[in-house]
């Protein structure tokens, strides 16, 4: 039974890692196709993609839209969570449901709805219309994380600050936000990841200034290529470094 467990664990990790390993290994392929046999080690594909202007522009667009849309979603989500956790408002259950609702709707449908609306309103598509879509998908996430993190502890500290004469803005900025910092950072980080990797909204709502996943998608049309492997490996490297840094600095619990 014990042996069987370890065998299962090994098989599971093999399955999880197989495509990733294949992706990374064949990004170093010294040949035209990223499939066996491995013809030797080469960095030519990395050289090629780093010199690819369209790809680098797409990378910049992705980073820009990820940070701006996540920041917006975080601020709005935090303020809304604060309002619903602190002040008794009529219909607050309904309001909470409304703010969470986009989470249960497929990205494709959100994108299609926005596309229809933008078309009818005569708004032309750009990186910013995709950004609007990314705020829609990240706002519920930021709201839910911030709302879940607010407890009585914060409530008392906020009340104390108010009694000492702090304005609501001061309470938010000097008391609530710092006390919720880990949750807010996690929400921001998750939002950035989702936006950075999001394909369908960016695909349907941008026209010329595309993001990285959309650019990778168009690379796929020309078939298998070690260049695509190289891009994928670099994205993987960046994300894994970010996760490791988060793990070290944010989620490490004091022992």
């Amino acid at each position: 039974m014990r042996l069987l467990s370890w065998a299962y664990l090994a098989a599971a990790y093999a399955f999880v890692f197989l495509p990733v390993v294949v992706l990374v290994v064949f990004s170093f392929q010294d040949g035209r196709l990223p499939v066996p046999p491995f013809q030797g080690f080469s960095l030519q594909w990395y050289d090629k993609i780093l010199g690819n202007g369209a790809l680098m522009t797409a990378l910049w667009h992705s980073a820009l839209v990820a940070f701006v849309s996540s920041a917006l979603a975080l601020v709005m989500g935090f303020l809304a969570a604060h309002a619903l956790a602190r002040v008794r408002l009529p219909g607050s259950v309904l309001l909470r449901g409304l703010l969470i609702a986009p989470m249960t709707v497929s990205y494709l449908i959100i994108a299609l709805g926005l596309l229809t609306t933008f078309n009818q309103a005569g708004i032309s598509l750009s990186l910013w219309t995709a950004g609007i879509g990314h705020v829609v998908i990240n706002l519920p996430l930021c709201f839910a994380i911030a709302y879940a993190a607010m407890g009585d502890h914060q409530k008392n500290a906020e009340r104390a600050a108010r009694d000492l004469g702090a304005t609501e803005a001061q309470v938010l900025w000097h008391v609530s936000a710092p006390m919720l910092a880990p949750a807010l950072a996690a929400a921001f980080f998750l939002s950035v990841t989702f936006s950075w990797d999001e394909f369908i909204i960016a695909f349907l709502l941008t026209r010329f200034d595309v993001t990285l996943p959309v650019e990778i998608w168009s690379m796929l049309r020309s078939g298998l290529s070690p260049a695509t492997n190289a891009v994928g490996s670099l994205v993987f490297l960046v994300s894994v470094s970010a996760v490791v840094l988060m793990e070290i600095f944010l989620f490490r619990r004091p022992k």
């Binding site: 890692f17 495509p19 990733v20 992706l23 990841t193 394909f199 695509t228 492997n229 994928g232 994205v235």
Partner: peptide, 12 residues
């Protein structure tokens, strides 16, 4: 592997 690009994961 969650952290690879979703498009790239299918490709791999």
């Amino acid at each position: 592997p969650f952290w690879t690009s979703y498009v790239v994961r299918s490709y791999s």
